[in-house]
Simulated scan of single mutants.
Amino acid sequence: MLFDIVQILLNVLWWIIVVQAILSILIAFNVINTYNDFVSSLWRGLNTLTEPIYRPIRRILPDTGPMDFAPFVVLILIAIINYAVIPNLYVALAAPAA
């Protein structure tokens, strides 16, 4: 039950990061702009949610100029946790003690 909740939260975080990456590309190529109130508030909200996650990763990663690899690292970490760590923890905790 607890593992299911964690997996759902990780999936929600995954989609938040994907939407933020798409929005970032659209803003960078001037397809949409932040003068629109909805786009501006969505952009600020997504940054508020993800910035605490990206900050420690950005401190570790080398400076790559305009390209930010922190979202990619977080997506990879989410995938590892979701598909390797959680199932193995579930099996380990569900196994009867010998």
Rank of each mutant, 00 (worst) to 15 (best):
I57W: 01
L75N: 06
V12L: 14
F3P: 02
N47A: 14
P52G: 08
F29A: 00
I57Q: 03
I27R: 02
I76N: 03
L61Y: 04
N11Y: 07
M67H: 04
M67W: 03
T64H: 04
S24F: 03
W43P: 00
P71R: 05
P62T: 09
L89R: 05
A28P: 00
A94Q: 10
I5G: 10
L77A: 15
Y54R: 09
V19M: 04
N33C: 12
P56Y: 09
L13N: 02
I27M: 06
I53E: 00
V6C: 06
Y90V: 11
P62D: 07
W14F: 15
Y54D: 05
A94W: 09
L77Y: 08
I8L: 14
V12T: 14
I5W: 11
E51N: 10
V73I: 15
L49K: 07
S24L: 06
V39Y: 03
I86N: 02
P96A: 13
L89Y: 06
S40R: 14
E51C: 07
L93C: 07
I22P: 00
R59S: 07
V31K: 03
F72Y: 05
Y83P: 02
A92D: 11
A70M: 04
L13T: 11
P71I: 15
D68M: 08
W14P: 02
A21Q: 05
I57H: 00
V74W: 01
A92N: 10
P66M: 15
I22V: 10
L46Y: 05
P66V: 15
I17N: 12
A95N: 07
N47H: 10
I22A: 01
I17L: 11
V74L: 12
I8N: 09
W14I: 15
Y54C: 09
D63V: 05
T48F: 12
G45L: 07
P87L: 08
Q20K: 04
F69K: 01
A21D: 00
I53S: 02
P71V: 13
D37P: 02
Y54W: 10
I27D: 01
P96L: 08
A21Y: 02
I76K: 09
A92R: 07
V73G: 01
S41A: 12
M67E: 07
I86S: 03
L9H: 03
